[in-house]
Amino acid sequence: MNEKDDSKDLWVFTEIKDHERVDECALEILGKARDIADKLDQKLVSIVLALDAEQYLSTIKDHGVDKIIYFSHQDLKHYHERIFTKLIHKLVEKYTPSIFLFPSTEAGNALAARVAYKCRTGLVSDVLNLELDDEYGNNLLLTDKPAYGGNIHVKITCPSKRPQMCTITRGTFNKRKIRKSTINIVKEKYEFERNELKIKILGAPTRKDKPSSTLSDAEFVIGGGQGLGSKDNFEKLYDLAKYTKGKLGGTRRPILNGWMPEHLQIGISGESIKPKLYISFGISGAIQHITGITDSNIIISINTDPNASIFKTSDYCIVADANEILNELLEYYKIEE
């Protein structure tokens, strides 16, 4: 357990995805962390665990880091909870960072929770903003986190334990291309006894690629509702999604009408989305749906009723028949096959 006085520097767990690329979210976090490091006059450090880790360092160097600490070993090809937790916990004890940020990915969330436990420190998950604050303590990290399905935002601090830890969702911050004139590279020695592993893998695992983009992490989402009027009209939304590389979702009504499968529901009993752009076609805006779309960056809505409640949650409101707008867009985006 680190007390705050001897801790310094800002760390970002720079995850390597599918042993082939640096996680985009981790690079976005480096962008924001650079600002905070400057304000604190502390170093920004990237933490990398991978097989052949050297191949990723040049990408990371372009994103504002002062230092990279890495492990490179065959055992680090995939995330492994025991190995990663142990190595990172030892690093934290050795260097005592003040702030440690993780991308909110399957591995990032798991690892952050485990490391926070090991360090007996606090962890705030899926933060929407990070600020430095003097109201509650000198240069304390003040995090903003949604709760109750996004209906409420809470501000959380971790006043006395270190590191102050957070996970951050993709799309929260922007990447910045900056290369520092001096970047310190430190390779740590890999040490782990394999007999500490408790889970036995039987046979060769099969590669199971997840869909490249699911509704919840899609950058462009198209939503449909009752206002489209018929299954045939709703089918056109699928076309628009296909031609624009967007993801299709919708409200409860199209599912009940048999227009759309259940797993595409957006809202409180379905998926929450956070795209750069969400366009809703013929959706009235029941609270069940609104809850799932509030994290969208820009929302455009099309509805015939100028008083539809969806417009209160929209950036751009278009009072029109969603089908007519849809036809216009399809005419433009349609790809002849």
Binding site: R120, T121, G122, L123, V124, Y136, L142, P146, G150, N151, I152, H153, V154, K155, I156, T157, C158, P159, S160, K161, T294, I299, I302, P306, F311, K312, T313, S314, D315, Y316, C317, I318, V319, A320, D321, E324, I325, E328, L329, Y332
Partner: peptide
């Protein structure tokens, strides 16, 4: 508890609520 909730706010999303007038073509 290491973490402290210092503030709780009801979240009201800030949206432009800008109505786009015009013909269907212009809106599209």
């Amino acid at each position: 508890s290491p973490t402290i909730v210092v503030k709780t706010e009801k979240f009201i999303p800030k949206r432009k609520n800008q109505f786009i007038e015009g013909t269907i073509k212009e809106q599209a």
